[in-house]
Write a protein that binds this DNA or RNA. Structure first.
Lengths: 232, 232
DNA sequence: TCGCCTGCTTGATGTTTATCAAGATCGGAC
DNA sequence: GTCCGATCTTGATAAACATCAAGCAGGCGA
């Protein structure tokens, strides 16, 4: 574990409040590794051996069933993943692969559980994190069950615009086939959905999307903090 | 707070490990109430004032957007709901109403958060609970994104059969329009989905469903513990 | 520069699902 | 018993979405 990465890990909400000794013993047990793109990190159904922290790059979490595959989440720095499985000492529900060359911190599951048992502050930080994750998934589920594909895309664009400069020019954070899967549609359908949004001022130029009429787009999208605001 | 209900609440995984003093002070602040059927308990967007425990009856959690409504979850005894919102001191993401006359325990949110701050064992129990809830929602999302409506129904029937006697005779736990919404479809479509399953030995008689050929149904449904097993 | 691969788009078609309207069924009130 | 209302089912139609096949770019190595 190189010491140059320690401060940014220590500053994560998940770790900042835990006792120094416990943090050090966690980091002592942890591995810092760089993985190439498209490397299979974890497979759904396998026991959860590590808690992962993404320090650099990007990890795609996906799930499969009956020959189909769907992207569940993209984890960017400084996000963690597979926390729930680690705590419950259960199997992974999602598979994970690097979508680009990535620097990851791997903390052995047993050490995480030990710190969780011994460090009340850590346990409380975990609750915050888990509660946040839970609410995110609930929002995604509302998005899926209550909206059409076009509405999901429209809201996604508005949300990205908010996260980025809010100036009506959005850079897609992943390629379009991944975005389609995240939004629960096929790549073909995403393409058509962009066309459907053209009358609402949405212009596509590769990964750069221009929102010429945010008002009209929002009138279609009807965004609500109870689905689209990631801080609520 | 009547003392006859205390033991079963105390025995819940969420409360069993916390210090007696903290449990008592929680219960002292709590209200035990009986509500009639179809009573609006909470509304999405409102601040989370109470943690709810269902002691008797049944509560339907649902969400709305743009005039549509979808059922997210049915909470039966002895389940709790809105834990994440209470802990984060955030607004409810779901609305809730009693689906029948129900006895509920209402614990003021601030008292829950106080106990969470002061009682490490309680904090750890909360983590267990939240991690379990999180994994349930993830499974539901996989179900929604990877399967068709007929496949979801088939797996739901197999899961109910497992929970009940496992003898191929299933009693639906709610009316069909609610089940349809839970499974992410319209009541009309649920009716047609049952017809589609007829060749697989599924016979409908009101709320009683007979599975005459579980093997053939399972061959269609392709159940997997990573979606359908609520204990994994 | 050329070819080629990859990612994206488009078109044609079929499946899945929702919507609207009408009937059927069941149970309770009277 | 009969009426009534709620729930469910069925049919017709339309919308949403997936699939298959082909075409179109842009990037990159040779």
């Amino acid at each position: 574990m190189r010491s140059t990465d320690l401060p940014e890990v220590r500053a994560l909400p998940l770790f900042e409040s835990m006792a120094e000794a416990n943090f050090e013993s966690l980091m002592q047990a942890a591995y810092l590794q760089i993985f190439p793109a498209q490397l299979e990190l974890i497979k759904e159904g396998e026991p959860a051996d590590f808690l992962y922290v993404v320090l650099d790059g990007c990890v795609e979490l996906y799930a499969s069933w009956n020959g189909h595959e769907t992207v569940m989440e993209m984890v960017r720095p400084l996000g963690t993943f597979i926390l729930a499985a680690v705590l419950k000492d259960a199997v992974y529900l999602k598979s994970g692969r690097t979508s680009q060359r990535s620097k990851l911190l791997l903390i052995p599951a047993e050490n995480v559980r030990e710190a969780f048992r011994n460090d009340g502050a850590f346990a409380r930080a975990i609750v915050e994190e888990l509660a946040g994750c839970y609410r995110e998934v609930v929002k995604q589920q509302k998005d899926l069950k209550l909206r059409t594909a076009v509405e999901r895309l429209a809201n996604c664009l508005l949300a990205l615009d908010g996260e980025q400069h809010g100036c009506g020019s959005v850079e897609l954070p992943c390629d379009k086939r991944t975005l389609a899967s995240l939004l629960g549609m096929t790549p073909e359908n995403l393409s058509r959905a962009f066309n459907t949004l053209k009358p609402y001022g949405v212009e596509v130029d590769g990964a750069r999307i221009r929102l010429r009429d945010v008002t009209s787009l929002a009138r279609l999208a009807k965004p609500t903090p109870l689905i689209d605001d990631s801080t609520v």
